[in-house]
């Protein structure tokens, strides 16, 4: 989808720098994400992808720079940004069911002192259906498989009806069915004009399904459409030697995957 030119950028990062106790995790990142775009954030382990998302959520303080959502500085908006973390830091033994967790997506819309209405329940039901976990609705969250838990938290993000959705590595550690469901959800979100930022190590997925790619390695290395950004030079620049080149199969020369399952320690760029 071509970004609507008259819409202001939904998401603006302006010279964003994040420092963890003296260690620079993100340095001077500037980017504008247009309305309804689907953006892949790609970079090696420790590149600052999760940090970028946490900064966008206001979960880590900015050392310098500013973030604007709908032109408003971070913090002045309500709950229009949904976030699916890389690792959920929830208490898995907590007595909540899948439906309870998905209903938590509605809490921001409900506001104080209000109980869920029939409409909220319908939205929860629809989100569960979309992720194919309606039959698990009454199961305790701790009794699910890892993939089912992932689906639950994605369903919660959908129930939140966000304008912007941040998904931190949703493609890692899932089976083909969950991957398929996640891609379907992405298509649904595009129809609903939701801006999606998604981090991944899978360069082929990034090239195939995304309008824009951010190559990140502490600094923003490149940002643009995949065919411009994902060139052998930029990939090597981002990942160092940590890339496997696959034989081209009639699809042009850009078939690369970053090895993320067991990266060789010494080849990870360390530029501290």
């Amino acid at each position: 989808m071509v970004p609507l030119p008259e819409e202001p950028a939904r998401l603006e990062m302006d010279h964003v720098t994040v420092v963890y106790g003296g260690h620079l995790a993100l340095e001077d990142v500037t980017a504008q994400v247009p309305h309804g775009a689907r953006v892949a954030v790609v970079g090696p382990n420790g590149a600052g992808k999760s940090t970028l998302f946490k900064a966008l959520m206001g979960l880590v303080p900015l050392y310098t720079g500013q973030i604007f959502i709908h032109g408003q500085p971070l913090g002045s908006h309500h709950d229009c940004v949904a976030y699916v973390p890389q690792r959920e830091e929830v208490d898995w033994r907590f007595p909540v069911t899948v439906a309870d967790v998905v209903m938590m997506g509605r809490y921001g819309h409900l506001g104080w002192l209000r109980r869920p209405t029939a409409r909220d329940r319908a939205i929860v039901q629809r989100s569960l259906e979309q992720l194919g976990i309606l039959d698990l609705a009454e199961r305790p969250i701790g009794e699910l498989s890892g993939g089912q838990q992932r689906r639950t938290f994605l369903a919660r993000a959908l129930a939140q009806e966000p304008h912007i959705l941040l998904m931190d590595e949703p493609f890692t550690g899932i089976d083909v069915a969950t991957l398929e469901t996640t891609l379907q959800v992405l298509d649904h979100l595009r129809d609903a004009q939701v801006t999606v930022l998604l981090s991944t190590h899978d360069l082929n997925l990034a090239a195939a399904y995304f309008d824009q790619v951010i190559l990140l390695n502490r600094r923003l290395i490149h940002y643009g459409p995949p065919e411009e950004v994902l060139t052998p030079e930029t990939i090597v620049e981002t990942f160092g030697g940590q890339v496997f080149w696959l034989e081209p199969r009639g699809e042009g020369p850009r078939m690369a995957t970053a090895s993320h399952c067991c990266p060789p320690e010494q080849s990870v760029p360390r530029r501290r």
């Binding site: 959520m57 709950d79 959920e88 830091e89 929830v90 208490d91 809490y107």
Partner: peptide, 21 residues
């Protein structure tokens, strides 16, 4: 009783509580 859902989300998932502001 009145703050049931706020206390629930805060104890179960503080990150989501922060996302909900």
């Amino acid at each position: 009783v009145l703050l049931y859902k706020e206390f629930l989300v805060l104890s179960f998932d503080p990150v989501h509580a922060a996302a909900l502001r």
